[in-house]
């Protein structure tokens, strides 16, 4: 059985909350970092905290770069006309939010740079539908800015330049190298989403999806220890908030894996800025969608 499709108003509420109200786990991580910091790092972190509070109270964008909406619709069981309807309502909500100052018009023509001003373009927003193995219908949105997107990267192992072979140690080296190369440019302290395996395309996609995972829900299994070890190691680099020195450099690392071709071994890193804006619409039994 298929769920209802969120209304335009419900999509608008999702985008408003995503843009203006950081998830509680991210705010808590900033708060914990602030308690341990002084000097320039402390000043920067206190501005981040003050900014988050102000944005939530005023329902205004946490960051002026509201990204390109990345939307994952899971378990809705929509047929092709349902999907068309979903996309039309979402596009309408994006237009409303773009004209009301919830989103910045970020969709420009790739070659000419012309900005039509409504936040809609070829391939924007990105919407992915998945129906297998889902208990409840959900719609997740990620608003990820261009600065953080630009520092994402992909390694093909073995990579002799960083001494990375096709093993756990090689994976570790890639992720530390990615954090080092990013310095403060992705708006540190960042959250690293990592995909081990996959191909060129699925690696980037799956790495980005790791950013939907909460900071207080670490991996289990092979990557559990690596995730916490990497946070400590990257935070010892001294890059710090906004790359101005000190700690932390990352708030978390989330690693997932996909099967790979025998000849390929990709490690892909998606950099999420400290202002990680992810929110979810959850279908309630009475057909109403609620932002969580």
């Amino acid at each position: 059985m298929s769920a209802t499709i969120p209304s335009v108003d419900e999509f608008v509420e999702l985008l408003v909350v995503a843009s203006s109200d950081l998830p509680d786990d991210v705010e808590a991580a900033i708060g914990r970092a602030l308690l341990l910091s002084g000097g320039t790092a402390g000043c920067i972190l206190s501005e981040m905290r003050d900014n988050s509070e102000l944005a939530r109270v005023r329902r205004q964008p946490v960051c002026q770069d509201t990204g390109i909406p990345y939307v994952l619709a899971t378990g809705l069981g929509l047929d092709s006309s349902g999907r068309r309807d979903f996309k039309a309502r979402l596009a309408e909500a994006i237009r409303i939010c773009t004209s009301s100052g919830v989103l910045r018009p970020n969709a420009v023509d790739a070659l000419t740079g012309v900005n039509p001003g409504d936040g809609i373009g070829e391939g924007i927003p990105q919407v992915h539908f998945e129906d297998e193995g889902c208990e409840r219908a959900t719609v997740d949105v990620l608003l990820k800015g261009g600065g953080s997107e630009n520092v994402g990267c992909q390694y093909s192992l073995p990579d002799q330049s960083i001494g990375a072979g096709r093993d756990l140690e090689g994976i570790r080296r890639c992720i530390i190298d990615a954090a080092f190369r990013a310095q403060g440019l992705g708006c540190s302290p960042g959250i690293l989403g990592v995909c081990v395996g996959g191909d060129r395309a699925s690696g980037y996609e799956f790495a980005k999806r790791q950013l939907f995972r909460r900071l207080d829900h670490p991996s289990s299994g092979a990557f559990a220890a690596l995730e916490s070890e990497l946070v400590d190691q990257i935070n010892s680099l001294g890059i710090g908030p906004m790359g101005l020195g000190g700690s932390p450099t990352v708030l978390g690392v989330r690693i997932g894996s996909l099967a790979r071709h025998p000849a390929s071994f990709f490690v892909t890193v998606a950099y999420g800025c400290w202002a990680l804006r992810r929110r979810r619409l959850l279908a309630s039994p009475d057909g109403v969608w609620v932002v969580v």
Binding site: N51, R58, Q60
Partner: peptide, 8 residues
């Protein structure tokens, strides 16, 4: 501070 759009 990057990301501090509302505060700034």
């Amino acid at each position: 501070t990057g990301g501090a759009g509302s505060l700034l």
